[in-house]
Amino acid sequence: MRSRGLFSRCALILGLVFLYVPILSMIIFSFNNSRLVTVWDAAHSPTLKWYVALAANEQVLRAAWLSIRIALVASTGAVILGTLAGVALARFGAFRGRLLLAGMTTAPIVMPEVITGLSLLLLFVALQQLIGWPRGVGAVTIALSHITFCMAYVTVVVQSRLVGMDVSLEEAAMDLGARPGRVFFRITLPLILPAIASGWLLAFTLSWDDLVITQFVAGPGSSTLPMVIFSKVRFGVTPDINALATILVLIVATGIAGSTVWMRYQQRRRERDVLLAAAANL
């Protein structure tokens, strides 16, 4: 028993090292003075010059701003559509179109991105021929595409939360006189809000991060941040990308670590409350 526990524990530690070494190396070399990225210039490092260069890079900043706007729109749209789909799948029992909806919400998760991207572009081209809209590809078509593949993830998150939730809560509200719409907004929505929030974050990240689908449905002048990074990286390593990566990792890490700590704090408080309640009963 002990030896196998040791083996899996070692594997876990090595695996974590494997996951974090590349990220750490990016962070370290973002402070490196040398242009040669991977050769540490001990004489003049650490330096912040790549961060300064990044801050002056119009192209990167413009792309980042576009990516943020698209991600905001896409994640919000995906949350609305994904919540509707999740509610329908988890609460409506068997209805016509259920299998279709279930299939169409899980397929995008595993669909190779090149195929999704190609099919969406061909759709936009066909639509343009047919009804004259959209006029060319750009931010709008990117956002529409992102909503589509992000909503699949939101649906799964919301649906599994709803499946795990006690249906009698909603029945109780209805029993007390609330119509279905009110039941949703007063009871269901507040209770699945954490799932919706994490769905939103997930969608935001996926949209913010997407390269392949975006490449298909983006037009000239609508380069998102991943597209700019990709075109730079494809032709070799550039130190300012290290700086950019460091900033992104920092934001994400603080966000995730903060939310984890907060969640654990909430959990502790809850557990304490439960203990107190039980004690009061004695």
């Binding site: 590349p22 990225v37 390593v237 990566a245 992104l248 890490a253 670590a257």
Partner: peptide, 29 residues
């Protein structure tokens, strides 16, 4: 929960940048 967070955390940072990081690790120099 901490370990899970450690597993998921890289996933939340850019996929593209994480692949790019390997170029720096694997190059000839």
């Amino acid at each position: 929960s901490v370990l899970l967070m450690l597993i998921v955390l890289p996933f939340w940072t850019s996929f593209l940048l994480r692949v790019y990081a390997w170029i720096g690790l694997l190059k000839n120099n």
